[in-house]
Design a binder for these strands. Sequence first.
DNA 1: GTCTATAAGCTGATAGAC
DNA 2: GTCTATCAGCTTATAGAC
Lengths: 212, 212
Amino acid sequence: MARQSGGERKKADGDNEGRIRARNEAKILEVSVRLFSAKGFDGTTISEIAEESGLPKANVYYYFKTKTAIYERLIAEVFRDWDAALRHIRPERDPREALADYVREKLESSRRNAAQSRFFAGELLRGGKFLSRRQRQHMLEVTREACEAVEHWISEGRFPELDPRHFFIMIWATTQFYADFAPVVAATLEVPRLRKSDFDDAADQILKAIRL
Amino acid sequence: MARQSGGERKKADGDNEGRIRARNEAKILEVSVRLFSAKGFDGTTISEIAEESGLPKANVYYYFKTKTAIYERLIAEVFRDWDAALRHIRPERDPREALADYVREKLESSRRNAAQSRFFAGELLRGGKFLSRRQRQHMLEVTREACEAVEHWISEGRFPELDPRHFFIMIWATTQFYADFAPVVAATLEVPRLRKSDFDDAADQILKAIRL
DNA sequence: GTCTATAAGCTGATAGAC
DNA sequence: GTCTATCAGCTTATAGAC
C-alpha cells in the first residue's frame, strides 16, 4: 500500500505494471498472428483483435501505437526462429543425418506454429515489404553458410552434385507447404485434417525422394 | 443508323455491346488479378481497380455486381488451368519423360502467369474459402488419376517406391515456390530478379535431385 | 452503356474522464 | 493503466442524369 503512494508511483508498481503489460501484449500478439494469417493485414481489424484479446480497442492502442506496429513485432518474432532449423547443416556432420534433422525440425516447427508459418508465408507472398534490410541480409548470410556446408560435402563426394541453393529452395518449399497449404495437402492425402503422423510420413517421403 | 433505332436496340448493337463488354471485363480482370495478388482481397479497392482499368468506379460495378464476384471469376479462370500440366502424367508414358515435361510446364506456366499463380496461392493460404465443392472435387479427381499413373509405374518397377501423393505435393510445392516467392528465391540465388534461365536451372536441378 | 454524386457503414486512431 | 465516446476518412455499393 505505502509503496504505491507518493511520487515514486511509476517505479513502485513497476513489477505489477510490467506483468500486466507482458500478459496483455502477449495476448494481443497471439490473437493477431492468427487473424493476420487467416485474413491478411487489411482484412484484420483492431476491433477484432481487441475483442478476441478481451480488451477494449483503446487498450490495444495503448500497447501498440498502430496496427502496423503489431504486424512488425510479429515479423520480428517469426524472424528470430527463421534459421533455427538450419543450425543442423554443418560441414562436419554427416550429410544424411544433418538433412534428416533439418527436414524433421522444419516440418515439426511449422506444424506446431502453423499460424505463424502462414503469417510469414503471406508476407513473403506479397513481396516481403515489411522485412527490413537487416532481416533480408540475415536470411542471405544464413543461407550462404548452409550452402557452403553442402558444397563442402559435395567436394568430398558425400553429396550429389546439385546446386545447393536450388536444393535448399526445394527443401524449404516442400516443408513449408505442409503447414501453409494444409487444406490442399489434407485433400490430396484424403484425410479430414492433418495429424502429426502425416508430417512424419512427409519427412520420411521427402528424405526417400531425394535418396541421400 | 437505321438498325440502331426502334425497339430492337438491344439486339441491334449486340455485337458492339458484346465487344465493349468483353474488352472492359478482360481489362478489369487483368488489373484485378495483379492487385489482389499484391495486396489481398481486403487490401484491394474497387476505386483502384477502376482507376487502373481506365474506367469510372460505377462502370466496374456495371460489369461485376460485387468485388467478390470479380474475385470468384478469377478463381474460376485460374482453376481452368490447374490440371493442364498434369496431363503429361499418364501410365503409358515413360516416367522420366513424363515427369520432366510436367515439371518444366509447371515452372513455365507459373513464370508466365506469376500474378495469377500468386493470387491462387494467396487464396489457398487463407484456406481456400472461395473454392466451390465442385472445384475441390475436381482437384481431388485429377490428383487421384495422376497418383494412379505413378502407382502403375511403381508396380512395374519403373519408379521408386514412394507415396505418390507426397511425391506430387513435393513437386507442386517446389515448382510453385519459384514464382510465388520470387523475391526469396532471387535473394537465395543472389540475383537482382529471376530470369527464364533461373527457371530452366530449377527444372534441371529438381529432376536431378529426385534422380529419376 | 457511361458517369457524377451520394448514401450507409466501417476503419484506424485519439481525447479525455476515471 | 483502463475504458467510453467520438472523429475524420475511406469503403462498398447504388441512384439517377445523360
